[in-house]
Every structure is written in structure tokens, then in C-alpha cells.
């Protein structure tokens, strides 16, 4: 048996979820990259959040405001005490993003289901098309915790102090050869490359492809420490719009127990457009 993750209590297995399907203290939340996947079938009792239509501010480039977040939780029957378990498609990509946002607004009992949808389906566990309804709750969000979110000014200071940054995009985006993911229209940033000093560790390297589960503690430690991403330093993770990097943020903070990790959600679509921002090109 491999060594346990540092904060393994933030990760639950599919077995645990299966035995808590009717637990009123637990709310399962599915967050997918594919907007239609939830409607084709989801874990019984699971609510849905969509990172575009549910979690983003409708006008400003930002997340929901505190009041909007409270309203969302209220409508999903989530109280301040509820244990919220996130899962989703594509290696829990958007599940980690939603987890990050819930932590930002101070929700304490949050978990990610290891392996996400992929593992649940592989294990032939039940799915339903029934959309659940929840008794409305009154939710009180905390003051946003700025210590997990980096803004561009923070990144500038981070660079001046020569602290490590991890760029979790594809190698082609990192080198500046492409401005968006391979195959996607190349738009969204005026310049290609990466934030000066950043190392490239694509986010999905933290996951076992066959099961969608996180790699072992030893493997993860090796993946990050060999590139200078070590627990003694402040770390900033970024990608194109801050969602892939919230996955890496989860791995570094909870699985590896790094005390000081921030997600820069402005990411490349902000940095690659900022006049005068320091950029490097090449692998």
C-alpha cells in the first residue's frame, strides 16, 4: 500500500460516495467540461454546476459575487455544515475548479471524489437522469480567502522575488508555439509563451489515464519536486483561464500538503494580453 496523501481527508473514494448517497449531510455536485453530460445520467442525488453558466459572473470577468454564491448554495440545499463532494468528467478538471471556488468562499467541508465520473462509470455504478430538488437553505459565505487566489499584481511581486511558478498548459502553449490548446482556434492572447521563470508541468500528468484517479504520493512528489516545485516555497499555478491550474492547485495543496499555493485564474488570457508583462518563449 502506498503512503497516504498529506491531507487525504479532502479526497473520497467511489465506495465512500456509494455508501453516502442518501446521507442528508452530504451533497454530491457534478461539474463537467461537457455541458450536456450531466443530463445523460449522473450519480443519484447529485446536483449540477456548470462553470460557465453557474459559477461565473454573468457580466464581469470574475466568479459569482458573495451574494450570488450564497444564492447558489441556497438553491442547491447546501448549508454551511454540508459536506460537498465534487466529481466530474475529464480527470475531475472542473470538479477541482468548483472545489477551489467553494474554498475561496470559505466552505469548510469540501471533498473531491477520486477518479471522478470515469471511475464511477468503469465500476458500473448506478446513474440516473432524474434531476433532484433540494429544500432551500440559507447560506452565509465567508470573506473570500485571498490566500488561494493570485491576481496579476501578486504574480508581478512573485516574479520579482524569484519564486516558482508552474505553468500547467500543454508544452506547445508553454513554448509559445500555440496560444490555445492544440487544435483550438488560436485566439485569446496577443502573445505566446509563458510567464518568465515558470516551469511546465501539464496538469493531467498528475492523473492515471486508465482510472482517472490521482497518481500516488511518491509519483506526485517526484513529478513536482524534480522541477523545483517544492513545499518550502510559495507557489503560483496558472493555465489559460485558471481551470486546469485549479486541478494542480488541489494536488499541490491537499495531496502533497504544500502550505502556500495560489491559483492565478487570470492566467494566460490575462498575462498574454498585458502590456509590458514579462514573457519568455521556448521550451
Amino acid at each position: 500500500m502506498s503512503e497516504q496523501y498529506v491531507h487525504s481527508e479532502y479526497l473520497v473514494e467511489t465506495d465512500w460516495v456509494a455508501s453516502h448517497l442518501n446521507d442528508p449531510e452530504v451533497r454530491l455536485v457534478e461539474a463537467d467540461e461537457d455541458a450536456l453530460l450531466y443530463a445523460t445520467g449522473h450519480i443519484p442525488g447529485a446536483a449540477q454546476v456548470d462553470w460557465f453558466t453557474t459559477l461565473q459572473h454573468p457580466v464581469v470577468r470574475d466568479f459569482l459575487t458573495t451574494t450570488q454564491f450564497e444564492e447558489l448554495c441556497g438553491s442547491l440545499g447546501i448549508s454551511n455544515q454540508t459536506t460537498v463532494v465534487f466529481y466530474g468528467d475529464k480527470n475531475n478538471w472542473f470538479a477541482c475548479y468548483s472545489f477551489w471556488l467553494f474554498e475561496y468562499y470559505g466552505h469548510e467541508n469540501i471533498r473531491v471524489m477520486n477518479g471522478g465520473r470515469q471511475k464511477w462509470v468503469l465500476e458500473n455504478r448506478p446513474l440516473t437522469k432524474d434531476t433532484p430538488t433540494f429544500p432551500r437553505t440559507t447560506y452565509k459565505a465567508k470573506k473570500p480567502s485571498k490566500n488561494i487566489r493570485a491576481f496579476r499584481e501578486d504574480v508581478m511581486k512573485h516574479i520579482e522575488k524569484n519564486l516558482p511558478l508552474v505553468d500547467v498548459r500543454s508544452p506547445q502553449e508553454y513554448s509559445g508555439e500555440l496560444l490555445a490548446m492544440p487544435g483550438y482556434p488560436q485566439e485569446g492572447a496577443q502573445r505566446g509563451g509563458h510567464i518568465i521563470g515558470a516551469v511546465n508541468i501539464p496538469w493531467a500528468q498528475a492523473v492515471n489515464t486508465e482510472t482517472g484517479t490521482f497518481k500516488s504520493l511518491e509519483e506526485l512528489r517526484r513529478l513536482y519536486t524534480t522541477k523545483g516545485i517544492t513545499p518550502d516555497k510559495e507557489i503560483v499555478a496558472y493555465c489559460r483561464i485558471g481551470e486546469r491550474s485549479s486541478h494542480t492547485w488541489f494536488v499541490l495543496k491537499y495531496l502533497l500538503g504544500y502550505p502556500n499555493v495560489k491559483n492565478y485564474d487570470g492566467s494566460w488570457t490575462e498575462w498574454g494580453n498585458l502590456v509590458g508583462a514579462p514573457i519568455e518563449k521556448g521550451a
Binding site: D34, L36, L37, T40, R117, V121
Partner: peptide, 9 residues
Amino acid sequence: PEESPTVRG
């Protein structure tokens, strides 16, 4: 793949 209904659409 079945798990990509948006793209299948």
C-alpha cells in the same frame, strides 16, 4: 465517445 455528448451533438 458517448461521454462527450456536446461534441456528439
